[in-house]
Amino acid sequence: MNAASQTTKTTFLGLDVVRFTAALMVCFYHLAYWWWRPDLATTGGGGFRDGIQSPVSAAGWIGVPIFFVLSGFVIAYSAQQRSSSNFLKGRISRLYPAAWICASITVVSGILFSAEFELVRYLNSIILNPLGPWVSGVYWTLAVELVFYVLVAIVLWVAGAKYLHSFAILLGSWSMAYWGLKVIQDFVGFDLGINLQIAGDYEYLTLSRTGCYFALGMLLWQTTKSGWTPFRLLFASGLVLSGLAANVGAARTYLLVDPLGAAPLLLPAAIWLMALAAMYCSVHFAEAINAVLGSQRNVIRSLGLATYPLYLVHSELGRDIMLSLTNLPAYLALWLTILALVALSLGIVELEKLIRQPLTSLLHGQARKNDARR
């Protein structure tokens, strides 16, 4: 069986394991580091005053770059043989139901625990407004994802799926150029006189920082179809180096803010490289991995699907749960909170199915009406 035919028939259970692990890392980052930061605890930011902040949990933010690489792979895979409109409808039915449920849960939690409610944040969250503000800071990644999806849809509309590889090269080159200049100016210290913040507070929407991750995931998908070439190896190396620059740069910033509690400089980058290796093996040795994990297939698939709602609800809701468990030892409160969040996320997966079905029918029904008018 060749790689191309294999990928059309195989479920990548290994990727579900990587995805869920990355989600747990982000959970630990917020619940065992972020909300324990002294600046939050002492300035009324809602943080905890004693407990479990550690350099290891402080590296958990690296789960987000891992998500972006996974997204690049999944989107390149799912966009095959699909029209631009069908691709967008698929993304809408995948993203919005869980966002509606999770934003509502976060709002209810905020009202119950802190009596806070801002309508504009809630509305921005349920429509996934890329500009924010949202009910939780984690929604910024959805803004980045939406920009990426729109660009992919444009490529499908203008040129078709066969040009997604070219798009990955353009997106990756854009991001590599950004990080190359960033290294020269910020790491080496040579002032090029170039303003890299061309979009100010909305720089994240340009994909200059994150494009290397998406492009790397798309390139990984391409190798399952037609293997590695010298150019792909060289290009992938550049993307990995750009990702390392991004990860080390972020880790350095955290160390400047929190020199005692932040993660060691190279730890997030090391975790990211291990995740890339796991993704590669999950894709190129899928059959062998599925044979090992096959007995737990349903559990692994369920946890993979629960990753998205878990990511959306874990920070603010997890903080509120832990604040209600202050009579327990910090580590016990942490584990009980994470277990509760995972259980809730599994429930959300089932609940969102009740919304997705009519939403999908509505989207496809409207599409048929539009086709009839033409």
Rank of each mutant, 00 (worst) to 15 (best):
S125E: 03
I126K: 01
P130G: 09
P130H: 06
L131Q: 01
L131C: 00
G132F: 05
P133S: 04
W134R: 01
S136I: 05
Y139F: 12
Y139H: 06
A143D: 05
L146T: 07
F148D: 00
A153T: 10
A153E: 06
V155L: 12
V155N: 11
L156Q: 11
L156D: 00
L156R: 14
W157K: 14
A159H: 14
A159V: 13
G160E: 12
Y163I: 05
Y163T: 13
S166E: 03
S166T: 15
A168F: 14
I169C: 00
L170I: 14
L170H: 12
W174V: 07
M176Y: 02
Y178N: 00
W179P: 05
G180E: 06
V183Y: 08
I184V: 10
I184P: 01
D186K: 11
D186G: 09
D186Q: 09
F187D: 03
V188I: 15
F190R: 10
F190E: 04
L192C: 05
I194Q: 01
L196V: 07
A199S: 10
A199H: 07
D201C: 00
D201F: 10
Y204Q: 12
L205H: 08
T206W: 02
L207V: 01
T210D: 12
F214H: 10
F214T: 07
A215K: 04
A215M: 13
A215G: 11
G217R: 13
L220C: 11
W221M: 06
W221C: 05
T224D: 05
G227Q: 04
W228K: 08
W228T: 04
T229Y: 08
T229P: 10
P230G: 11
F231R: 12
R232Q: 09
L233A: 12
L234F: 12
F235L: 00
F235R: 14
L239Q: 12
V240C: 13
G243N: 08
A245Q: 03
A246R: 08
N247D: 08
V248I: 14
